[in-house]
Design a protein around this nucleic acid. Structure first.
Lengths: 205, 205
DNA sequence: GCGCGTATCTGACATCCTGTTACTAAGTCT
DNA sequence: AGACTTAGTAACAGGATGTCAGATACGCGC
């Protein structure tokens, strides 16, 4: 079946939003301005979204998948830990590079709305838990020093979020490799220090 | 001389703001609501501040000093590097714990205003530079592995910012020691890995 | 092609917050 | 007391939001 008219309209609005956020910050996004970029009128927006924050939530959903996907290489625990982590971080950086503006826009919008803030925090928090679990595993296996996994996981994740949004959020994006090697270094030194000689040297400078 | 009437009014407004942000997020702060907590009327606000974001900028200025202060122990390069860094992080966590709500409010408000965003980014960025310089020093001294200092400094700083705001920003604050030991571990493993055996063990779990 | 019910869309409205201006009141100095 | 400066306010205009009653377009049986 052909996509319903509603589906077309809805995704036209979403597209217009993505395009807008490619070049302008969330604070400049208004319902009126957004809809002016489409062939519909302002009230139509409210047929499909509750408000701008709900709109951002939808936009986030479309990106979530890719981000979560990337984490698998390390979390699934196949192959060596160091290699898996490297792999996961690499794809994470790739995905973030791709969707930088939307991620920044969501992060910017979140504090303005209780619901979106919770969604965003939950999104970030979900990584805290899985990473923390993986750390506990590696500690049991003697790969990782013994420490409380959760706060360290949180710290590392906040680092990623802050770094990636800062690097790829605005128009001119920072070089991917510098970002990747910086966060890779921090993750590896913290989680697999015994491996340091072998693994860190490979990062290069 | 006694404080001028203007100074009294101004600081009454600032106080009302601090108190408000102690329990409610920035998004709930309006000029009208704020001034209702004082004995003045709404337009009076505009005699002293350009708008809510200018107001937040002023609030940030009052906290800045303490934060910068704390960094000295490590940056000044007296005594051993590991101890100095430990010391700096400890006071950083203390100060952040104390002013958590204001820091979160500023971070929340920043994306809503181009000027405040720049101020906030500059504030964060200033640490990137000094930390990066210190890292370069330690690399020259052979204490720290050889890598590009700036991106790593940025990553570590973003970690601190994200962690501290998340931990101390809202009403119920996370336990200080868990936060401190998590970020301390990451900083030390990354910057002084050769010292690992000696230094990391002291962190405890 | 014609009517009809449903899906889709819009004009017009009430509301809220912002930032400014023209004005009043309260001090201060001679 | 009179003149000048500082402090504060009431009232206005602008702009964005979210809602609703009504208009328009579409699909479908005939």
């Amino acid at each position: 079946m052909p996509p319903s008219k509603a589906a077309i309209t809805r995704s036209a609005i979403l597209d217009a939003g993505s395009v807008f956020l490619e070049t302008r910050p969330f604070r400049d996004l208004t319902v009126g301005g957004l809809m002016a970029k489409t062939e519909y009128s302002r009230p139509t927006f409210y047929l499909y979204f509750n408000d701008l924050h709900g709109f951002m939530e939808t936009l986030l959903d479309e990106v979530k998948v890719g981000i979560v996907e990337g984490a698998r290489a390390w979390l699934s625990n196949e192959g060596d830990a160091v290699g898996g982590l490297r792999q996961s971080l690499t794809t994470l950086v790739d995905v973030a590079h791709q969707h930088g503006p939307i991620l920044k826009a969501v992060a910017d919008a979140a504090p303005g709305d209780a619901r979106l803030e919770r969604v965003w925090e939950t999104f970030l928090g979900s990584f805290d838990e899985v990473v923390s679990a993986r750390i506990a595993q590696d500690q049991a296996a003697g790969l990782t020093p013994d420490f409380e996994p959760l706060p360290v996981a949180r710290a590392l994740n906040r680092m990623d979020a802050g770094m990636l949004i800062h690097a790829f959020g605005s128009g001119e994006k920072a070089p991917k490799d510098a970002v990747l090697s910086a966060i890779t270094r921090v993750w590896l030194s913290t989680l697999y220090p015994f491996d340091a000689a072998a693994s860190i040297e490979q990062i290069g400078r």
